[in-house]
Design a protein around this nucleic acid. Structure first.
Lengths: 143, 143
DNA sequence: GCGAGTGAGTTTGAAATCCGAACTCACTCT
DNA sequence: AGAGTGAGTTCGGATTTCAAACTCACTCGC
């Protein structure tokens, strides 16, 4: 988790990915949609490319222009964004939510399930098997 | 999404939640496990409490001591963390991953599915219905 | 009853980031 | 020739982050 956040946890990184997923893949368009300072966006894009999450490819020689597309590894981050979106819609809903249509025809309500049994994976259903080094669960704290 | 990140997108915020989910709920324990500067952790905790994601409650009067527990809204962020964890395990795996056991008895592999049809929701299966104000999808960019 | 320790922070000053605006460079379009 | 566009880079100033030290209110061992 900490390692993942080292890649996508910096300010704007996940918003950049959102835009890339939605098809906004050019520098200036991202600046407009995200509202990030141009230099910050430039560094973010560099990092995401070197992390293998985005790919920078030219869509025009003369003048040389680039676009940024999610790699396969990048696409695998989409579920993270879906869950962030869902949470925001449930708990912060100011504007009407963006609707994504699933291939089944319904409007998407993303749910996290256990890949093994297909049942929802949430609070009550999970038990950590902890053996991380240096990790301490101090004090009594039954959930 | 942007709004959600305004709440949990700051540095360490999601790590704080991870600890809280795992039962680490005291200030000093979090400092030890996360390695964040104490002042930053203090501000993060304040923000997460006022955002309604954590709850600060005393576990001892005299001396006055507090712990931070996820609220119901907080627990709803767990899926986000699960997907971040999964991605890290697949793409950055340095140390052996932490195993979570699902109530079905199997080790959890979290998957995001469409709540309507139960089928996986990923790259090919989603079509955005875009009508956000000021949002521009510039240039040709079929996925 | 005294010194050491603990838990939950706050303070402090230097280092790293972020910000917005302006600038560059290489073109294209009128 | 002049205006515009796309993809950045450069600037100085405002915010954040950082690590270490400090506070305050206790408790514990002797």
């Amino acid at each position: 988790m900490a390692d993942t956040l080292a890649v996508v946890g910096e300010k704007y990184a996940l918003l950049v990915l959102r835009e890339a997923f939605l098809g906004v893949r050019r520098f200036d368009a991202m600046v407009r949609n995200i509202g990030a300072p141009r230099d910050v966006l430039a560094t973010r894009l560099r990092r995401l490319v070197e992390a293998g999450v985005l790919e920078k490819l030219p869509y025009s020689e003369r003048p040389r222009r680039f676009e940024y597309r999610p790699t396969p590894a990048g696409w695998e981050l989409q579920p993270v964004l879906l869950m962030l979106m869902k949470w925001g819609d449930r708990h912060l809903a100011d504007r009407p939510p963006m609707v994504l249509e699933h291939s089944c025809g319904a409007d998407l309500t993303p749910v996290v399930v256990c890949g093994h049994c297909g049942q929802q994976a949430d609070q009550g259903t999970l038990t950590p098997h902890v053996q991380a080094p240096g990790w301490t669960r101090t004090g009594p704290a039954a959930d």
